[in-house]
Design a protein around this nucleic acid. Structure first.
Length: 200
DNA sequence: CAGCAGATTGACT
DNA sequence: GTCAATCTGCTGC
């Protein structure tokens, strides 16, 4: 079942992030269906979170999408090269979002290998937010689109036992000072498609 | 308007 | 381990 807008419209972004583990991210672009199970996410709590682009309710061309009603895609360019995919949560004008950092490939692996210019399935194919977006064919033009269309997240009944869910600090947000310490990163223990990050 | 840093990745020493 | 690639947006001249 495709997760409905009501799933994203709730107010607890950290809880939603945790629930996304084990769900399946699916894209259908240029005739190819590609999908993978979400194994790593990070919550960004908008106005009150220094690590968020929308800290202090800052509005720019780029962050405008985060103010939409939950259930939209927020895709932005990092370091001028990498497309990072987030899902917008909460109600309109509350800029919460969840960064999907890594998936375990399920369907359309050939198409993902082609998009990434790779021969063999390794964790490098989808472990890491930039790599994952490229594998799924997601880029900045998709920002603001609904998660009920070519990009969607499905519940296929996979349940991750609590003891396999690890909470940690987020990757690459040291500049956020005290907010960098928030345990807003969640990943599935022992899954080899979880990204390594840099300074963990 | 120039300069810099960033929710990263991959190529090279 | 080090570093370049290169867009968006902030800071300061």
């Amino acid at each position: 079942m495709v997760l409905p807008n009501s799933f994203y419209a709730r107010k607890d972004v950290v809880k939603i992030a945790r629930e996304l583990l084990g769900k399946v991210l699916v894209t259908t672009f240029d005739g190819a269906l590609t999908s993978g199970m979400i194994v790593e996410v990070e919550a960004y709590a908008g106005a009150t979170d220094k690590a968020s682009h929308a800290y202090g309710n800052r509005r720019t061309t780029r962050t405008e999408v985060m103010y939409m009603q939950g259930g939209a895609a927020y895709v932005y360019l990092c370091y001028g090269i990498h497309h990072l995919f987030n899902v917008v949560t909460n109600v309109q004008d509350v800029p919460h979002a969840i960064l999907i950092r890594a998936i375990e490939p399920l369907e359309g692996i050939d198409a993902m290998l082609e998009r990434r210019g790779k021969e063999k399935l390794t964790p490098a194919l989808t472990a890491g937010p930039g790599a994952m977006s490229q594998a799924l064919g997601i880029y900045t033009a998709h920002t603001g689109t609904s998660l009920q269309g070519h990009i969607r997240i499905e519940d296929r009944g996979i349940k991750i036992p609590k003891k396999y869910i690890v909470a940690a600090t987020r990757v690459g947000v040291a500049y956020a000072m005290d907010d960098a310490l928030r345990p807003y990163r969640f990943y599935i223990k022992d899954n080899r498609f979880v990204s390594k990050g840099k300074g963990l």
